[in-house]
Design a protein around this nucleic acid. Structure first.
Length: 663
RNA sequence: GCUCUCGUAGCUCAGUAGGAUAGAGCGAGAACCUCCUAAGUUCUAGGUCGCAGGUUCGAUUCCUGCCGAGGGCACCA
């Protein structure tokens, strides 16, 4: 029986007893982990609630402690429960039978694998404009999205990961303007330039994009180049389109490489150009008209537009409550296209992309890209058609995302709003000191602000690759000093794993709706609450097992199962609470991952991994396994250490963090 | 103007389906390497949970108002 199952069983029993003894139907039964191991493994503050409801129902005033005493008796009937105590004003504290419970669960595996028969869910993340390199704020999106994918998979969900490519938007147009009108280069010349470029292509574009911003600022007339270019991109053919397609694709390749460094991969790259060329909007528009959810305005300020009635809280008057989807000149707004695209993801559009293979990763995993050309590639996976779609998009887009969600739900009430989830998060901004370190020219007003927003347009930001490099260099210095016997290759691998762990943990330890104010010192830390701290706990435990005899774990399990009585005594001894609390914490991984999935909050998992690591470092400090002379105690310690390292390895893996061989 | 999010230790942040003594990291001050790696462990100092009301046996958590910070509110993308 797992901890989750036991909790639910106990919860049911509490509800049942409340019904039988007090004639009260409890809607929800809260259970909590007591603040200290001495207070038990699970607590029900339910007697307070019952006392209140009994008073309401009968007017009779009952002491919560008396109520708890009655519930106590019924819970004690389970064999997994060692004892139940009534504590404080009426808490019901449940103590598990540690030896029995541990014997049953010491071999548990924590992570589920995706069930191929379960309905597919889609997570879209990254989705950066393919016109420059990624900065650390973009990386937050990807790390959050990728970790959420891992969390869903660990709960057994089948997940499709998409990275949307806006290859026909203003940002791509702007960098194309830079190539055409500032650099005066055609496609061949760009390729030639690239062949002897000292910096990566996306870095080059980063600088060029900033120049274009200045180009527009210097003379508003220059904006006509943007309009021209956008028009060409929309047309979908011709020299400029070809050039833009090349530039965008090259940037996508660079971005995929950056993400590969963080162990982030995709299944599909849906491109905006294909949404345009395959007329997704027209299809969606037909469906909307068919279902009568859009209206053509013949008068008022929206005259000539197609609108969708929208009873959102955002509108200030009745008119603004309607969302314009088609402008009076007949063109569709961005949100309209987004609704069509969201319909495709959910399998509601009734039309599909064409596909071709974009790239094959080292281990053979494939990432596909959409096209508008009819092709019939071999081994084409099935894309789209997801039960639920999670869009990882920063909180500034909350309003358009709300429109998409409500829009789709209006067209398909049978599907409902639950199918579209905006996985919203706050941006990464620069601290004033970090901005100054980067040499940005801040105004006096800027310097008084709580943070400085990153801006691709201004060229303000810490590039993801630069920062990973910085972390790798720092880690390499440490690794090579500590492990001079390792080959250079191995040292570099470990430094890389540490860098990834540090960055991913840093981006995940904050809850989604906290603005991360990026500060170099804090982000580069390898001590305290960091990924490195967690990795180190796992490495230390692994090194114990390397030094133990070959069959130590199997032997321990055998000793353990035969000596139930002595095991009980150990758990009841002086060190019992401490070692049991580590075991109990390790056994909570599954529950934690499930909580993180329900709350769409990877930070819950990050905090768990940190707390588990802390308990492990403490355990490591207090107990010597290898030299332990009492065979049964040694077996218990080995089994707990194994449980803990497997839980931590699984928890870290779910965050996309590897455990290095040595550190 | 309308609307959303946030305000917890010197700093950066957790927490709260209303509940036991409000936690962690950093920073500050001390102690611990002959020891399965000190990227570690232990101890100390540090809080009117923005302010004021309300609901409740009980509020940092829920409600209202105020103050402060940051978003979002186009026939932009």
């Amino acid at each position: 029986m797992s901890i989750l199952q036991l909790q639910n069983t106990l919860r049911e029993k509490v509800g049942e007893t409340a019904r039988e003894k007090f004639n009260i139907e409890l809607e929800q039964i809260a259970a909590e982990i007591p603040p200290k191991t001495e207070l038990g493994d699970l607590a029900f503050p339910v007697a307070f609630e019952l006392a209140k409801q009994i008073k309401q129902a009968t007017g009779e005033k009952q002491n919560p402690r008396n109520i708890a005493e009655i519930l106590k008796v019924s819970l004690e009937s389970f064999d997994f429960v060692a004892k139940v105590e009534v504590a404080g004003a009426g808490y019901l504290n449940v103590f598990y039978d540690r030896a029995k419970f541990f014997a049953e669960s010491s071999e548990i595996t924590f992570l589920k694998t995706p069930d191929q028969r379960s309905p597919k869910v889609c997570v879209e993340h990254t989705s950066v404009n393919p016109n420059k390199s990624m900065h650390i704020g973009h990386a937050r999106n990807s790390v959050l999205g990728d970790t959420f994918v891992r969390i869903l998979k660990a709960t057994g969900k089948r997940v499709e990961t998409q990275n949307y490519i806006d290859n026909t938007g203003v940002q791509v147009a702007d960098v194309v303007v830079g190539f055409l009108h500032l650099r005066k280069l055609n496609l061949e010349q760009i390729k030639d330039l690239e062949s002897h470029l000292q910096i990566p292509f996306d870095y080059y574009c980063w600088d060029l994009y900033t120049e274009v911003g200045k180009f527009y600022a210097s003379n508003a007339e220059n904006l006509k180049f943007r309009a021209e270019t956008l028009h060409e991109l929309e047309r979908g053919e011709g020299e400029i389109y070809e050039l833009a397609d090349y530039v965008a694709t090259r940037n996508v390749e660079c971005i995929l490489q950056t993400m590969e460094r963080l162990d982030i991969r995709y299944d599909l790259l849906p491109r905006e150009s294909d949404i345009l060329h395959l007329h997704f909007w027209a299809k969606a528009f037909d469906l909307m008209k068919e279902r009568g959810v859009v209206r053509f305005e013949t008068e008022g300020k929206n005259k000539g537009c197609w609108v969708m009635p929208f009873d959102s809280h955002e509108g200030t008057d009745e008119h603004e409550a309607d969302k314009i989807l088609v402008r009076s000149n007949g063109t569709v707004v961005y949100t309209g296209k987004d609704i069509a695209y969201q319909m495709w993801k959910l399998g509601l559009l009734g039309t599909d992309f064409c596909y071709r293979l974009f790239y094959t990763y080292d281990d053979g995993k494939q990432v596909w890209v959409t096209t508008a050309d009819k092709t019939e590639p071999e081994n084409l996976p099935e894309f789209g058609n997801s039960e639920v779609v999670f869009n990882v998009i920063d909180s500034r887009q909350a309003y358009p995302q709300e429109v998409v969600k409500e829009g789709v739900a209006t067209i398909f009430p049978e599907k409902g709003e639950g199918a579209s989830v905006h996985l919203s998060y706050e941006m990464v901004a620069l601290s004033v000191s970090a901005a100054l370190e980067l040499g940005l020219s801040l105004t006096e007003d800027d310097k008084t602000r709580p943070f400085i927003e990153m801006s691709g347009r201004k060229g303000w930001g810490v590039k993801a690759d630069d920062f990973i490099n910085l972390l790798e260099e720092k880690a390499f210095t440490e690794v090579s000093t500590r492990n001079p016997d390792f080959s250079l290759e191995k040292q570099k691998l470990i430094a890389h794993q540490i860098a990834v762990g540090a960055l991913r943990y840093f981006l995940l330890k904050f809850t989604k709706n906290t603005i991360i104010v990026f500060d170099f010192k804090e982000a580069l830390a390898f001590e305290g609450e960091t990924g490195v701290y967690c990795q180190n706990a796992a490495v230390r435990f692994n090194s114990i097992f390397k030094k133990l005899e070959e069959n130590a774990l199997e032997d321990a399990r055998q000793t353990f199962s035969m000596e139930n009585k002595i095991v009980s005594e150990i758990f009841d001894s002086e060190i019992g609470n401490e070692i049991w609390s580590l075991a109990a914490l390790a056994l909570r991984l599954e529950e934690t991952i499930s909580q993180a999935a329900i709350a769409t909050e990877p930070a819950i998992l990050a905090k768990y991994n940190f707390n588990l690591s802390k308990a492990m470092h403490l355990f490591h400090h207090n107990h010597r396994i290898i030299t332990e002379e009492n065979a049964v105690k040694r077996a218990v310690l080995i089994a707990i250490a194994d449980l803990a390292r497997r839980a931590l390895t699984g928890g870290l893996q779910t965050m996309g963090i590897e455990v290095p061989e040595r550190m």
